[in-house]
Computed example of a mutant assay.
Amino acid sequence: MAYAAYVFDAYGTLFDVHAAVRRHAEAIGPDGQLLSEIWRAKQLEYSWTRALMGEWRDFWTLTGEALDHAFERVPSADKGLRGELMDAYFKLDCYPEVPAVLKALKATGARVAILSNGSVPMLESAVSNAALDTVIDDVFSVDPLQTFKTAPAVYDMVTTAYRLYPDAVSFQSSNRWDVAGATKFGFRTVWINRARMPDEYRDLSPSLILPDLNGVA
């Protein structure tokens, strides 16, 4: 089935969230992977906590706070690398298959968009750095809503902007919780299970599970 719009989560789906630490792996040392994992986990936790409290801070601010916490948890990592790591996160690499997949979907005549917790400057920088400007039609950031996924209002940004019913939208995310939220909203969902994680939220199953974006259609 063809869909009117293919909408992608950004971080972990299009852009590699661990690329920033890998870029400075030698300077960080042997605990780099641990630092990166804590950084990502806390970034997400802070977004959920802030959303539930109704106490808004944009995703870039939370990303910095999460990195500070990660440094506290991993004392072997040099805190002096904070600036370099934040700059690297601002210019994350995309996964290898991303440009070709998005180009192929755009060639079908469907809209291709991003729907992300990321702040507008973060997303614009990532898209530009990965040279995806010509294949992405729209970037939807949660900034205007001042909340985060999985709030239904976030997914509704797409259907409102495109004047579509939810089932006309195919939504792709590597985050299982995000897929659950989008499924509940009514999107057709594809879980990009890059980390080969076990399934969760079995009452809110995706339509399709893939190891990467190849095969999205």
Rank of each mutant, 00 (worst) to 15 (best):
A2K: 13
Y6I: 05
V7L: 03
F8W: 02
D9I: 04
D9T: 02
A10S: 10
A10E: 05
A20R: 11
A20W: 12
H24Y: 12
A25C: 00
A25M: 09
A27F: 05
P30S: 13
P30E: 10
P30V: 12
D31L: 09
G32H: 10
L34F: 09
S36M: 10
I38N: 11
R40C: 00
A41Y: 10
K42I: 11
E45I: 02
E45C: 00
L52E: 03
L52N: 11
M53K: 08
G54P: 06
L62P: 03
A66C: 08
A70L: 10
F71V: 03
E72N: 11
E72C: 00
P75A: 14
A77T: 07
K79D: 12
G80T: 11
G80R: 08
G83W: 05
L85C: 03
A88P: 00
Y89F: 14
L92E: 08
C94E: 09
K103Y: 02
L105S: 04
L105E: 02
A110S: 06
V112N: 04
L115T: 00
S116R: 01
N117L: 05
V120L: 15
V120A: 15
L123A: 13
L123N: 10
S125R: 04
S125V: 02
L132W: 08
D133C: 08
V135E: 04
P144W: 01
L145C: 08
Q146A: 12
F148S: 11
V154Q: 06
V154G: 02
Y155F: 08
T159W: 00
R163W: 01
P166K: 07
D167P: 03
F171S: 01
Q172W: 14
S173E: 08
D178H: 01
V179C: 09
A180K: 13
A180Q: 10
G181W: 07
G186Q: 10
F187N: 07
R188W: 03
R188H: 15
V190Y: 12
V190S: 06
W191H: 06
W191C: 04
A195T: 08
R196V: 11
Y201G: 07
Y201K: 12
P206R: 09
L208P: 12
L208M: 14
D212N: 15
G215N: 06
G215T: 03
